[in-house]
Structure formats: structure tokens, C-alpha cells
Amino acid sequence: MTWSDMAPLLWEATGQTAQMVLWSTLFTVLFGLPLGVALVGADRDGLFPAPIARRILGLVVNVGRSLPFIVLMIAVIPVTRLITGTTIGTGAAAVPLTIGAVPFFARLVETALREVGRDVVQAAQAMGASRVTIVAKVLLPEALPGLIAALTVTVVTLISYSAMAGVIGGGGLGDLAVRYGYQRFETALMIVTVVVLVVLVQAVQSIGDAVSRRLTRR
């Protein structure tokens, strides 16, 4: 297989991976961020104490995190069909990716939010800030460098999950490596695919680190 044979395949697969990762990142943040806030806020001494709800949420998140992604991917096939109407394609792959990443991201968000000092939150309460204001203007901005770091790790994880999701019909770089590299013994393509994945992960990590560092004001 020559480079001119590989290039279009790689190009298409990279596009599919990017699509899967972008969509699932978007939805992961959309659901994971509020979940992370809830995990912190519902504490007994949190902003909106709800110990029982907190325990249930914690349990659900732990179950989500302990399932191997490959198992989760297959287990949520009915949900995928319900949401997207199909179980194959990049759109369908985004569903298990999101479901797999939300608990992971939510835990990282929780950790980042806990780094914000209690005294800062209390100072805002002493000023008469409402809980919504405290979340929006104290917790999230103060935790922003940590949140960016959490997002970076999540995107990297999604890139690796997406390689698995590709195998069940999502396409992408992982699927390419398996189909050509493994099943057709195209070692050169396999190596190039791995290189592209490494470069992708490295790029995401570097950008995330740089942004996070720029936002740190300590």
C-alpha cells in the first residue's frame, strides 16, 4: 500500500474520529459539568445539602466509572437506538462515548471544585451572594484552570474510547487500524494510524496544559 492509497483513508478516518470526539466532548461537558457541581453542592455542608441524593449520584457515577468501556458500549445499544434511531455510524458512536465519559468527567470536575477554598465561598455568602451566583461567579471561575485540565484528560480519554467505538460501526482511526492493520496485515498503515493518534493526543494535551497554565493566577 502506497502513501497515495493511505492518505484518503487516513483523512476520512481522522475526520470521523474528530467528529465522534467533538460531539461526545460537547455532550460530556453539557451533562458532566452540572453533575460535578451537584456532587460538590449536595454535600452535607455544601451549597445545597442533599445527602441522600448525593449518595445516589455518587453510586451511579461509580457504577458508570467501573464498567469497562467495551461492555458499556454494548450495554447501551438500546439507548443509542432510542436517541439516534440507528446503532452504527459516528453519530451513534457518540452516545456510548458520552455515557462513558460523563461520570469520569464529573469526578474530575468534583475534584477541581473542591480545590476552591471554603473561605472564598463563605466570603461570598457573607456578602449576600445567592447559590447560583456562588456557582457561576466563584466556584467555576476559581476552578477554571482545574476544569480545563479535567477537560483535557477527558478529551484524551475520548480519543482512546473512540478507537473502540469505531469498531462497532463508528469508523475512525481505531477502526482503520483494526481493519487494515490487523485484519489485512497492512503494517505500514497501522503504524501511520498510531502515529496520527499519538500526535492528536499530544496536541490536545499541550493545548490544554497551555490554556490551564495561562489561567492560573496563584
Partner: peptide
């Protein structure tokens, strides 16, 4: 209570400023 607190200032040992 929130409105009443706006009329009561408070300062803290470790300043409690927003670093962002």
C-alpha cells in the same frame, strides 16, 4: 437575610480573595 448581609461587611484571616 441575603440583603441584610449586604449591609454587614466581613474580613477574613486569610483574606478570601478571588484569585481569578
Amino acid at each position: 437575610l441575603r440583603r441584610a448581609r449586604q449591609g454587614i461587611g466581613m474580613i477574613h484571616q486569610h483574606f478570601a480573595l478571588l484569585s481569578s
